[in-house]
Design a protein around this nucleic acid. Structure first.
Lengths: 232, 232
DNA sequence: AAAAGTAATTGTAATTCCTACAATATGTAA
DNA sequence: TTACATATTGTAGGAATTACAATTACTTTT
């Protein structure tokens, strides 16, 4: 139970919007609130920033408490501070988003918290508590832009993936735009030379198995130093 | 004199980095601090967020108190909250930047505050108080990106401008990249059809006078609704 | 064993966009 | 009248983007 007196007249929090990709859909992790305000409603994961905690550290903590994961992609998006955004006082929140490999999360299994969590498709994540609809929209918009300018999409895929999976990821995120041409997408991605053909293929599929690739982070970094600019 | 007790254990502020364009150079407005900490050092303009004030409103207030201007381009950039960024306690700051027509500021003349302010070229704005060097860098980087994806450069120019002035503006902001080809720049900008030829020319110059243009905001908005994406 | 089903893989031509590059025009100052 | 300073304009070559469909490799069904 949070005692608001402890946080003085005003408080600040971080919210960490956790994105995952599963079953061809972009998903976000939501939490059912166990206490007022908005008890019983779904909300985005967040927490107060501790007095001796940097902002990024706080966002990472929220992630780790929920998923057990650390060292994942994390990006600050925007700070929300409308005077009445929190019914119990002035609370300013710094919004972050994380990109995780949803399979890793599944392996962790039980979340170490008693909170009820759920992955929901981005389009179904509405009517959230507080101003979380607005926060989610801002984070999703940022992700759409980010994914086109930096190779962060790989953070959402398993280490080994097929080109079709990668394309589906882009389609799920950029959705409203028209669908992507298979040949042109492959041409473009492969021409970047930041994927490694692992020489392996899919197993257990009822059709021609696809080749598996992985993202070559070191090579990408080297290219960046040489002035390369990722864009899709 | 600020009494830190009033802001409890932690406080939040906004910093508003005010950019102007003058004499072919991108400039920022800095303030000489009149009190501890960092007394006598240059700093970025900022202030505490009042209890009943939204964040954007707070940033606008900082701008207006300094320049008398309102209704100018304002954008939130990032929030800085390192535990020890402020020597007198935990202070989290939300960084914004504003783009103003420096000529308008000059007309205002005397700043209504007793603070000593100065326009300095972006490259000379170093050794600022607090973590303001880092904040300025973040805002400048954001501006570089923004100016290529949205037609915000016009906010820094007088209402009527020449194509050469516009090009110089882009060169000043994107500087480190190679200089822009005159013909290609004009072709590109004019092909966007978001500039209006005012049918007037420069006066008082010792050479062929250039045509004056203005940015057609309404037309741009209509194009955006039709799916147009500005890029330079 | 053959056929049907399913998704993976691959190339080319047309078009659009980007880049490099220099001569002429229009004003003021000497 | 000449010198000076900057404004204005076009074209050709190369690069990137787009549109578009047949063949391949594997599993499942008959």
């Amino acid at each position: 139970m949070i005692n608001f007196e402890d946080y003085a007249k005003s408080a600040f929090t971080v919210d960490n919007i956790i994105f995952g990709f599963d079953d061809g859909n972009l998903k976000v992790l939501v939490i059912k609130r166990g206490e007022a305000p908005y008890e019983g409603q779904w909300a985005l994961p967040g927490n107060f920033v501790y007095p001796n905690e940097d902002l990024d550290a706080s966002a990472n903590r929220v992630l780790q408490e929920l998923t057990g994961l650390k060292d994942v992609y994390l990006e600050q998006v925007r700070t929300f501070g409308a005077v009445n955004r929190h019914p119990m006082g002035r609370v300013i929140t710094v919004a972050y988003f994380s990109l995780i490999k949803i399979t890793d999360y599944k392996l962790q299994g039980t979340a170490p918290l008693s909170k009820k969590t759920e992955w929901v498709s981005i389009k179904d994540a509405t009517n959230l508590a507080f101003d979380h609809d607005e926060i989610l929209t801002a984070c999703f918009n940022r992700l759409k832009r980010r994914v086109r300018m930096r190779p962060v999409g790989f953070e959402l895929l398993p280490r080994k993936f097929t080109l079709t999976e990668l394309q589906h990821l882009y389609e799920a995120i950029l959705e409203p735009s028209k669908e992507i041409d298979k040949r042109n997408f492959r041409k473009k991605i492969l021409s970047m030379k930041i994927l490694v053909d692992l020489g392996e293929t899919q197993e257990g599929v009822a059709h021609r198995p696809a080749k598996l690739y992985k993202f070559d982070k070191k090579k990408y970094k080297k290219f960046v130093e040489e002035g390369y600019i990722f864009e899709i």
